[in-house]
Nucleic acid binder design. Structure first.
Length: 257
DNA sequence: GCGACAG
DNA sequence: ATCTTGTCGC
């Protein structure tokens, strides 16, 4: 498995190499301008239209014995701020959770769900790391390379790497670089991603933890951070991922029949 | 042996 | 990931 991850990492592109225009997603003004255009100009073609951004998240189902035996992957596709499609898939679990090998546990369900998706993703956001991984092949990188689709890893906690500064009480919109340390299969100092503060309390006493954003495939670290900030809504997680998260728990309960 | 560890 | 009430603060 580790050998496969090294191959995945070798095939991965940790720099911008996507076709869509990131402006409408990164710049609020461009976004509203594009939205206005979309409403009034029915002839907007694919070159002008918003990219399809997909959020992916998993939940788990338990058997009669109470053990987690199946993974449910929820996929939510959005365009211009609107949900255009939602699909989910359930597959049997074969691997236990082992830090660094998450893609082998959840990858099957994710790929199954993505295959049933009708729209073509321009960008996929995953709940988990991308390049911030011992062998630079977190789940976002793994799936991104397998599907050869631009992808970004959005994790709620740090797997490895060294923060280049304090992340306590960062202001919303700011970031702190995360560099490779000796636990990572990359030259020391390589920028693996960023701790990104998408939301923050207006005033003191308590603070919100940042998200750990890293390139999955065909997206550079700075752009990955920019996109996560641009795709943010009212919550801490970028909207596509938050909705996938919500759908994962929702579909899980519907499964009780 | 010790420490660290996405979801 | 998952199990869950109350509770602190704006």
């Amino acid at each position: 498995m580790e050998a496969l991850q090294r191959e995945i990492a070798d095939a991965a592109v940790f720099e911008d190499e996507f076709r869509f225009d990131p402006e409408p997603l990164t710049n609020p003004l461009a976004a509203s301008a594009a939205a206005a255009t979309a409403e009034t100009d029915v002839s907007a073609d694919s070159a002008t239209s918003q990219p399809t951004v997909v959020g992916v998240d998993q939940s788990f189902l338990t058997n009669d014995a109470g053990d987690q035996d199946r993974a449910l992957s929820a996929v939510v596709a959005m365009r211009g701020g609107e949900v255009v499609e939602r699909v989910h898939a359930v597959t049997d679990l074969e691997t236990p959770y082992i830090p660094g090998l998450l893609s082998f546990r959840e990858g099957g369900a994710i790929l199954a769900a993505l295959e049933s998706l009708a729209v073509e993703p321009d960008l996929i956001l995953f709940d988990g790391s991308g390049r911030i991984h011992f062998r630079q092949a977190g789940i976002a990188t793994h799936i991104g390379v397998v599907r050869d689709v631009p992808s970004i890893g959005v994790a709620k906690s740090l797997l490895c790497g060294r923060l280049q500064g304090e992340t306590d009480n960062l202001s919303a919109g700011t970031r702190v670089a995360i560099e490779a340390d000796d636990s990572v299969d990359a030259p020391e100092g390589t920028v693996l991603g960023y701790a990104v503060q998408t939301r923050q309390y207006d005033s003191p006493n308590r603070y919100i933890n940042p998200l750990y954003v890293s390139p999955g495939h065909r997206v550079g670290p700075e752009t990955a951070a920019d996109l996560v900030l641009g795709l943010g809504g009212t919550y801490k997680l970028p909207e596509p991922v938050r909705l996938a998260d919500q759908y994962a728990t929702e579909a899980k309960h519907e499964f009780l029949d």
